[in-house]
Design a protein around this nucleic acid. Structure first.
Lengths: 347, 347
DNA sequence: CTGAAAGCGCTAACAC
DNA sequence: GTGTTAGCGCTTTCAG
């Protein structure tokens, strides 16, 4: 250990003594509050420098009744969407002078519950929850009742707010854009791979698919839809299954990029050439979507905006500038055309 | 705001009054310390339940002189290696009853410096730094001098410890395995793409490449080596450049998976078929390495082990069970053969 | 412009 | 078994 000759952490009191002033003056200098003479100010700064003094954030938080962090809960940091989201949230939190405490529930519900119980309202002032399958809604309501600000971001149902402040995007609209793109290319036999149960997290995306299919007067059969896990493997398996049983499909709508990447590889492993034999389109536009070959055509959602508005909403909630029923909308989704979609063969 | 009828956070004092005992008894019950009568215990638990009381971690940390979190610093959460690392570190920190405060420096040196100054020693008891190009070594030493435990993980030079406790892996050995694999397949014209400057973070990997080439009596020319950024785009550009100027190469050693993924696509865009025209091998084995087509042959490093041992070492440091010069080794790297390597054409 | 007193919510040490 | 006293490091009154 470095214990041999290290300088123990200095406290504000020691700095004050060193500078020959009171603790309060040191505090004021450091935070730019109050009025302090230029001369005194310099003496304090010198002492701070000399002692290598850093204010103790824990003590400050206690007396200010304000936690030093904001919490971010997400289900799976390994899904590339979340690092992108986390990055933006982190930067935004920093703007509000907060650090970000990340809880990766890893799809285990009680990890999230435990985290919330321990952290919310003491270590963290508020909680931003990135939407995912097993949202612990009841836990979140319990926090609200204790007066702790909670925001759900990436909420997919703008018309059905959860009773908790949220940031939404037009998920159904995104799906509509994706499926319309296929139809405009001339596809009629279009399957769907949904990364959640039928009434799960991607239900609005499913609804968008069905709606556009209906509008285009395309007869769907239930067998053209597959429900799976929202993961690369989930997409791979569902596509393998779907393409084996319905080999005449010329296009696939996938509800999310990560499973779509699995779909792309499943298709290739089954001998389909994408896009000449099969078109694939999905939603999100995570970085790896542009790195696959062919590149994945997808409908980009405003990931960074969802994160930033989530943090901002949390802050507004703390200042009474927003309520539990506030719904913040984000920019509309946009189609990003890459190599995975084309007109069907023979058209 | 939910302010209409929410229950304000209860303090330990209120719980004590409610239960008709002293604060100390409540504290003892909640932490399982001291001896408390069964009857009293129940009364306390009831009161806790009734009030929805949660201990304030900030206050506890202040009096225990022990921060509630450990800090993790990394350069780029968007590189898939780091989420994998973070996941393992998080789980391990939880085992030691700490939350993890993640600082993503995003390659900006002063973001890291600011973070360390603010957080280390107050919000966080110790700092785990995942190695990356611009390691703020001087800042880390300054922390050490203040008696704050610091660990560098993913240190690549087992024989040249940084004077800071670290967790290493055999980077040179990993590179040796990768290049030997190419040579055993029959390759002789092998280029190298290194994701750092010549004497940068991947220098041990470069040394491994050169060593094996020399042992195999293969004449290298400087033009067969390219130094680039440790990113997908870096790999893509370097490969485009290298393959254009040295089209007779039959194999490429890339120092890291992320640039190797870029190399794979660059090769394909230039019309090379991998592996029949060109073999590609690299180091790490991040998840996307298995999701590319062809799959990336790579030398797996023990990512989770590096993270876990990093956290454990931090804890040991705090207990005086390790010192600034402690070096912890991890399991040897292992070759993972996928589709990106094969014997050169015509052999 | 500067200082002294009080206390944030909790736990360590000791008394009863 | 349980309660009392003291104080972690800081900021918020409010006097000077």
């Amino acid at each position: 250990m470095s214990s041999k000759h290290f300088t123990p952490a200095a406290t504000i009191r020691e700095v004050a003594e060193d500078a020959g002033v009171s603790v309060m003056t040191v505090s004021n200098v450091l935070r730019g509050r109050g009025r302090v003479g230029e001369e005194t100010r310099r003496r304090v700064l010198d002492a701070v420098q000399r002692q290598g003094y850093r204010p103790n954030l824990t003590a400050r938080a206690l007396v200010e009744r304000k936690a030093p962090t904001l919490a971010l809960m997400l289900s799976c940091i390994t899904n590339p969407f979340y690092p992108e989201f986390t990055l933006a949230a982190n930067l935004c939190a920093l703007k509000h002078e907060r650090h970000l405490l990340v809880c990766n529930t890893d799809h285990e519900a009680d990890r999230g519950t435990t985290f919330l119980q321990q952290v919310a309202g003491s270590l963290s002032d508020g909680v931003l929850v990135a939407n995912y399958g097993d949202l612990p809604i009841e836990d979140l309501r319990a926090l609200q009742r204790r007066g702790i600000p909670v925001v759900i971001s990436v909420w997919e149902l703008p018309d059905e707010p959860p009773g908790i402040a949220c940031v939404t995007f037009d998920a159904k609209g995104a799906a509509r854009i994706a499926v319309k793109h296929l139809i405009e290319l001339g596809h009629r036999r279009i399957g769907a791979i949904i990364g959640s149960p039928k009434n799960g997290i991607h239900s609005a995306r499913l609804a968008g698919y069905r709606e556009v299919m209906r509008e285009a007067k395309i007869r769907r059969v239930a067998a053209d839809e597959r429900f799976t896990e929202d993961s690369y493997d989930g997409g791979y398996q569902a596509a393998t299954d779907l393409l084996s049983s319905r080999p005449d499909l010329t296009a696939l709508f996938v509800s999310n990029d990560l499973p779509a990447l699995g779909v792309l590889n499943a298709a290739s492993d089954l001998g389909y050439a994408v896009p000449s034999d099969l078109s694939v389109v999905s939603i999100t536009d995570i970085v790896p979507a542009s790195q696959s070959r062919p590149g994945l055509t997808t409908v980009a959602i405003p990931t960074a905006e969802l994160a930033e508005k989530g943090i901002d909403l949390l802050i507004d909630l703390m200042n009474g500038k927003a309520t539990d029923t506030t719904v913040v909308h984000t920019s509309p989704p946009e189609l990003v055309i890459r190599g995975s979609t084309a007109a069907p063969a023979g058209s």
